[in-house]
């Protein structure tokens, strides 16, 4: 079999990629925890953010990591508008309708991008994309190391926003007790939109972390949707800690599967976990409520 060194490196790779997965899942689980909706457009919104990062790099020469400063506010605004003016009003608050509206939204986004950019895959070429960080005998990809730290930092920032700011307190209040929050004067639809926007801002950061090592095409987000859902379900719908742990775990599982079963069948591992968790432990590892 493989030398321990190779296995260790593969698992570390998985862990680092898992941190970015976790960031994507964080947005999804936050939205679920507060709005109690499954946002099927999450993957398509990630694609939008990735195209944004690509456009900034291609046409304005903005470094992908620096583009976080532009893309995070932009995606925040887009997310706010999408929830406030499309998803909220169109779905009349029913679970099934929200699912269908977000599905419709994802199809509009995917195909809008397809019409505008065609289906070519696009990449950003940076000097550091294929640099390595040498950790003893291990060769770690530089962008992935950056990904790990920035993802963890973003989670920390998100936590601070939720715990330490007025907006965060309002979000937590709405998540716990929607009617009560409304009674004490919190504008629920505004809080909903802010939450959705925060989830989209997480996607902007994830997109910036992915672009130096990954490509974007109009359907790129699809590959991440089910991975993100798996993480959210595994960690417990609505649980932030769960999304973090779940993300890292899924990253490692994916790396191990593809090392031992090959990349083709390795993807099945994630879906099987997803199905098993849904069937046998729908509350996930950390979720108390459903």
């Amino acid at each position: 079999m493989y030398s321990p060194l190779i296995v260790a490196e593969a698992l570390l790779n998985g862990l680092m990629l898992g941190a970015v997965y976790a960031l994507i899942a964080l947005g999804l689980t936050l939205i679920y925890g507060v709005l109690h909706i499954v946002n099927f457009a999450h993957g398509a919104l990630l694609t939008v953010a990735m195209f944004g990062v690509w456009l900034l790099a291609e046409h304005l020469g903005v470094d992908p990591y620096l583009s976080i400063l532009i893309m995070a506010p932009a995606m925040f605004g887009l997310g706010y508008a999408a929830q406030r003016f499309v998803i909220g009003p169109a779905s009349h608050g029913s679970d099934n309708s929200i699912l269908l509206v977000t599905l419709g939204l994802s199809i509009i986004i995917e195909n809008g991008l397809l019409a505008g950019f065609r289906s070519d895959t696009r990449t950003i070429d940076t000097d550091y994309a294929f640099q390595v960080v040498e950790l003893g005998p291990l060769l770690l990809s530089f962008p992935r190391v950056v990904g790990l730290f920035v993802a963890l930092l973003s989670a920390l920032v998100l936590w601070a926003i939720l715990e330490r700011t007025d907006v965060g307190r309002a979000i937590r209040a709405v998540a716990k007790e929607k009617l009560g929050a409304a009674l004490v004067g919190i504008e629920v639809s505004h809080v909903y939109a802010v939450t959705f926007a925060l989830g989209c801002a997480c996607l902007a950061v994830a997109a910036a972390l992915l672009m130096p090592v990954f490509y974007v095409s109009p359907t790129t987000g699809r590959a991440f949707v089910l991975v993100a859902f798996t993480i959210v379900v595994l960690g417990g719908m609505g649980s932030i800690v769960g999304a973090l742990v779940g993300g890292l775990l899924i990253g490692v599982v994916e790396a191990a599967c593809s090392l031992f079963f090959g990349d083709s069948l390795g993807q099945i591992g994630i879906f099987v976990i997803f199905i098993l968790v849904l069937l046998f432990r729908p509350t996930g590892l950390f979720g108390a409520r459903q």
């Binding site: 499309v86 169109a90 269908l100 509206v101 599905l103 419709g104 939204l105 994802s106 199809i107 509009i108 995917e110 195909n111 809008g112 991008l113 397809l114 019409a115 109009p218």
Partner: peptide
């Protein structure tokens, strides 16, 4: 993609 774009809008 334009046809599917229209489908998505019609669904919503």
């Amino acid at each position: 993609g334009v046809d599917l774009l229209v489908f998505g809008a019609i669904l919503i």
